Every structure is written in structure tokens, then in C-alpha cells.
Deep mutational scan, measured.
Amino acid sequence: MKVIFLKDVKGKGKKGEIKNVADGYARNFLFKQGLAIEATPANLKALE
């Protein structure tokens, strides 16, 4: 799953980066902790 990092995550990505991560890791950790959001077209446009 492609995500946009909202904060730096050690070993995974830095704020503003778009990367592929495992679906479960994204849903169960990154999204719940507020560290990333899904890289949807609307979210990508908002990032610009």
C-alpha cells in the first residue's frame, strides 16, 4: 500500500515521502499512530 508519511518513522521513511509499505503495517500502526495517510489521488493533490 502506498502511504504518505506525516512524520519521520525510523527505518521506514521521512515526513513528506511516499512509499510502499505492507498493508497491515499501514493500517495497524502508521494510520492509528497518525504517522501516515493513504496515498490516494486526493491526498497526493493536497500534499502539493
Rank of each mutant, 00 (worst) to 15 (best):
G11R: 06
L47V: 09
D8F: 08
L35Q: 04
F31T: 04
G11S: 06
V9Q: 01
N20Y: 15
V3S: 00
A46N: 12
E17L: 03
D8G: 07
Y25S: 06
K32V: 14
L47E: 07
G34F: 09
R27P: 02
L35H: 05
L47H: 11
N43D: 06
K32D: 09
K45A: 12
F31I: 13
A26E: 11
G13W: 14
G24P: 13
V9F: 05
K12L: 15
F29A: 06
Y25L: 09
K14G: 06
N28Q: 11
M1G: 05
V21P: 01
A39R: 01
G16A: 02
K2N: 12
K15T: 09
I4F: 08
A46P: 06
A42P: 07
G11T: 05
A36T: 01
L47D: 05
A42D: 13
I4G: 00
A39K: 02
K10Y: 14
K14I: 09
G24N: 15
G13N: 03
I37D: 02
A36M: 01
F31D: 01
A46I: 12
K32T: 13
D23M: 15
K12Q: 15
L47G: 05
G11H: 07
F29L: 09
L30V: 00
K32E: 11
F5W: 03
I37Y: 02
I18E: 04
G34P: 00
K7T: 12
E48T: 11
K15H: 02
G13M: 04
F29G: 04
G34W: 05
D23G: 13
K10M: 09
I4M: 09
Q33D: 06
G16M: 06
I18H: 03
R27I: 14
G24H: 15
Q33S: 10
P41Q: 08
V3A: 01
N20P: 06
K12W: 15
E38I: 08
K10F: 13
V3Q: 00
D23A: 15
V9G: 01
K32A: 14
L47A: 08
D8Q: 05
P41Y: 11
G16D: 06
A22D: 15
V9P: 01
K10D: 12
K45R: 09
V21S: 02
K14H: 12
A26F: 14
E17F: 03
G34K: 09
A26Q: 08
A22Q: 13
T40V: 05
L30M: 04
K15F: 06
E48D: 12
N20G: 09
A26I: 11
A46F: 11
K19A: 09
Q33T: 11
I4L: 11
D8E: 09
A36K: 01
N28G: 09
E48G: 11
V9E: 01
F5A: 00
A46M: 13
K7F: 14
G13D: 02
L35F: 08
K12A: 15
K10T: 11
Q33E: 13
E17R: 02
K15Q: 09
A36V: 07
L35R: 05
K45L: 10
G16R: 03
I18R: 02
K32I: 14
K19Y: 08
K7H: 14
G34V: 03
L35M: 09
N43S: 07
Y25R: 07
P41W: 11
A36E: 02
K10Q: 13
F29K: 09
L35W: 11
T40R: 02
V3G: 00
G24S: 15
G34S: 08
K14A: 10
A42Y: 06
T40Y: 03
Y25H: 06
K2G: 05
K12V: 15
G11F: 07
M1R: 08
G24D: 14
L30K: 00
K19Q: 09
L6H: 01
K19S: 10
A22N: 15
G13T: 03
E48L: 13
R27E: 10
K7E: 11
E17G: 02
